[in-house]
Design a protein around this nucleic acid. Structure first.
Length: 772
DNA sequence: ATAAGTCATTTTTTT
DNA sequence: AATGACTTAT
């Protein structure tokens, strides 16, 4: 078994220990994925049926990578492995067993937006104070209840929880939870947390199913164990109870998801629950230079909460860590990109060897602009993901409603988009009726003539309903792509966007085309076969990747599940030569030759919202640890002394994390005194950061706004916008308080309406002879 | 019922 | 800076 030769001693022991409960504590870059994949390979070589091996990961990408690595060694046999994310694996099981829970097998998965908008309407229906009961707050409460396996009834009976809500002035949350759960059920929908909660419920309520799945999974492996929550642990513990071959892999120092209910307590519980636990510690780092490893150890040493382990490496010391100071967020962007450019030239590196890591999505803007200016290709992961865009959600809502008529959130979204004369009042009346009669919104609309006699909107409603029904009929005969393109046209959506000639309109149209292309790829990857149940018989698909030709789900429903559980981090562009931009959270599990950790300012990173307690601060520090340990060769840290936030200039101090690094491994481009002195100076002298070049820019902060500023902009002028480039003002409208300019941008071939009060424009050419 | 106009909020990380 | 909620006009 030559694959074992590629491992060090601890790794080999961890691979060979197949039986019983195992915990592998794996530091960053210690070959964790390699151990996991070889472990699977090893089990298969010992003759274990791949069908009995379950491996759970956090991202689809991690799952795909693991499967690919196993396939390389074992070939086709790897098809039958159960590898997937918690959510996708459980979603599949839940679809198959949906009947037991009274759910249809084509249930919809509500994303966070759907959950919140449903809660919003429930809060409104209950006539509760919506500044006290904010959907996001209520949703968080419900979410953490589900992640602790607390149902609506238990919630309302739990003295502590009730007291908590009472104390927070929100005693009705229990009721809202109950109503929310009911409405989800009525809509044939599960939210993200339900995929875990209902899975647990299934296993605890139906002994035959527990027996079935316990016996199916003889070996269970869990990646990133430090980021599992209570529900996930409980499910895995139940599933593994018969064979007890559970192997968890994780690193407490990289636990960064407590806001999602993840808890290091799982590690402690695991040790407690399995007394015969074997523990392996992978401490040798193969990824980073000595300097980087040294810095990482030093930083994490400031945390009190940790399992003792010391990461070490045999690698070259490497370059020192670069520390850069910038005057503003835009300057930071410029400096980092200049630095990347220089590094590229000096060491002949490709774009894809670089990553820029930040704490929050909003930080990406300055880097994007700097990259665009130098024409360097880049890709931003996460942020407003493709599937969050309005136009995409609109089309997806049509698709979802076609698959599941009871999906209330989708129905409400598109019932009058494009406008078809079914206004707010009509929907509200129907919704009221639905709640009165216990019918679903769809059912009310279906019987609209009899339930709501004499309504003016009747024709429009009937047309809409029959349109959707026509789409549904096509489910049996058309594949996902054909049906989706038909729906895009027949719904009027495509037409609506086609007529919009603004920059946004153009890009929306393109996005719809992009979505359709994506569906096309999906369809081609998974040929259509009508009326066949994809789940029974064999477990052949992993997160949309179909491995067995006979057993494929290529329907629209399968596509919808794939996209709701897919994140931007999953769309791997590994082959494209682009600089990558992402949050530190989404960089988990990845590595890059050159890493730029940016925005290292007190209040931003560590983030203001996470400095309430020592535990929170320690999680921020773990996040920083994750960030710097992504780097293989070159690590660069930057901070800006001033930064725009909501259009206002703010000042900040360098992050405390910078000082936690051993100064001997830092290559500072300025003196320590300068680091603080100049930021001090800037804070007290009244600085205005010009947007690009003074003084042509119309520039506004809330305090210094003068009406004259935007009055400089006149029809016919040529102006430059930071994001859209140079364009011509073709139309002006508005009053003395708010003025809109319609600007035609040449490079993008489209127009855009810009609110001048907030605009950052540079006047390129003032003289104009004619009005647009 | 819809479009245009005005006001208010946003400040974390994600399956 | 941008979006959504709310208000007023058509």
């Amino acid at each position: 078994m030559d694959y074992l030769d590629e491992l060090n001693e601890v790794q080999r022991k961890a691979v060979m220990a197949t039986e019983g409960p195992i915990m592998i504590v794996a530091g960053p870059g210690s070959g964790k994925t390699r151990v996991l994949t070889f472990r699977i390979v090893h089990l298969m070589q010992l003759g274990v049926d791949p069908f009995r091996i379950l491996a759970l990961t956090f991202t689809n990408k991690a799952a795909a990578e693991m499967r690919e690595r196993v396939s390389k060694i074992m070939g086709n046999e790897a098809r039958n492995l159960y590898i997937g994310t918690f959510h996708s694996v459980f979603a599949r099981i839940l679809r198959y067993e949906a009947g037991r829970l009274g759910y249809p097998s084509n249930f919809t998965i509500y994303d966070t937006d759907d959950s919140r908008s449903l809660l919003k309407s429930i809060i409104r229906e209950q006539a509760l104070n919506d500044s006290l009961y904010k959907p996001a707050v209520v949703h968080n409460r419900i979410s953490s209840a589900k992640n602790s396996l607390i149902g609506p009834a238990e919630y309302q009976n739990d003295v502590n929880i009730v007291a908590d809500d009472q104390a927070a002035g929100r005693p009705k949350i229990g009721l809202l939870y109950e109503l929310y759960a009911k409405r989800c059920f009525m809509a044939g929908a599960m939210d993200f947390d339900d995929l875990l909660y209902k899975m647990y419920y299934l296993l605890s309520q139906f002994p035959d199913l527990l027996y079935k799945y316990q016996n199916r999974f003889r070996y269970i492996m869990i990646d990133e164990f430090q980021d599992t929550n209570g529900a996930q642990y409980a499910i895995v513990k139940k599933l593994g109870d018969v064979h007890q071959n559970i192997c968890v892999v994780g690193d407490d120092a990289q636990s960064i998801y407590s806001f999602r209910g993840a808890t290091i307590a799982n590690i402690l519980n695991f040790e407690k629950d399995y007394s015969d636990l074997q523990v392996f510690k992978l401490e040798q780092n193969y990824r980073s230079t000595k300097h980087i490893v040294h810095a990482a150890n030093k930083v994490i040493g400031n945390n009190r909460m940790q399992i003792t382990k010391e990461i070490w490496t045999d690698n070259h010391p490497g370059e020192k860590i670069k520390l850069l100071k910038a005057g503003s967020d835009n300057d930071e962007g410029k400096q980092v990109i200049d630095g990347i450019f220089e590094e590229k030239m000096r060491n002949q590196r490709m774009n894809k060897e670089f990553v820029i890591l930040y704490r929050t999505h909003s930080q990406s803007r300055a880097f994007e602009e700097a990259l665009r200016r130098l024409n360097i290709p880049y890709v931003v992961y996460g942020g407003i993901s493709f599937y969050q865009r309005k136009e995409i959600k609109d089309l997806v809502a049509y698709l979802r409603l076609t698959v599941n008529h009871f999906d209330e959130e989708s129905l409400k979204r598109i019932i009058n988009y494009p406008s078809r004369g079914i206004g707010q009042t009509t929907v509200e009346k129907a919704l009221l009726k639905a709640n009165d009669t216990g019918l679903r919104l769809w059912e009310v609309l279906e019987r609209y003539d009899e339930v709501m006699p004499g309504s003016r909107a009747a024709n429009a409603v009937n047309d809409f309903i029959s349109k959707i029904k026509t789409f549904s009929l096509m489910l049996q005969t058309h594949n996902a792509f054909d049906l989706a393109s038909h729906i895009a046209k027949a719904s009027g959506l495509l037409h609506e966007l086609y007529n919009d000639k603004t920059i946004e309109g153009l890009s929306r149209y393109e996005n719809i085309q992009g979505l359709l292309n994506g569906i096309k790829e999906f369809t081609e990857r998974t040929p259509f076969e009508a009326g066949k149940d994809p789940i029974e018989e064999e477990w052949v698909t992993v997160d949309g990747e179909i491995l067995n030709e006979k057993n494929l789900d290529k329907s629209l429903g399968a596509y919808l599940q794939e996209i709701t559980l897919l994140t931007d981090a999953d769309k791997d562009n590994g082959t494209e030569d682009r600089i990558k931009l992402m949050t530190i959270h989404s960089a988990k599990g990845l590595e890059f030759p050159c890493v730029y950790v940016v925005g290292l300012e007190e209040g931003l990173f560590p983030n203001q919202m996470s400095m309430g307690s020592r535990e929170e601060l320690e999680e921020e520090r773990r996040l920083f640890y994750v960030a710097i340990t992504r780097a293989q060769h070159k690590l660069s840290l930057t901070f800006a002394t001033t930064r725009y936030r909501f259009g206002n200039l703010t000042h900040s101090d360098p992050s405390r994390f910078i000082e936690e690094i051993d100064p001997r491994v830092i290559d500072k481009q300025f003196s320590h005194r300068e680091m603080n002195a100049s930021s001090h100076e800037e804070r007290f002298s009244k600085v205005t950061i010009p947007v690009i070049k003074p003084p042509q820019y119309v520039h506004k902060t809330t305090s210094d706004f003068v009406a004259d500023d935007f009055n400089q902009i006149q029809t016919g002028m040529e102006v430059e916008h930071q994001r859209f480039g140079v364009g011509k003002v073709v139309h002006l409208e508005g009053n003395s308080k708010e003025k809109m300019a319609t600007i035609f941008f040449q490079n993008n071939v489209g127009s855009k309406k810009i609110m001048l009060r907030y605009a950052r424009l540079r006047i390129v050419k003032t003289n104009m002879m004619q009005e647009g």
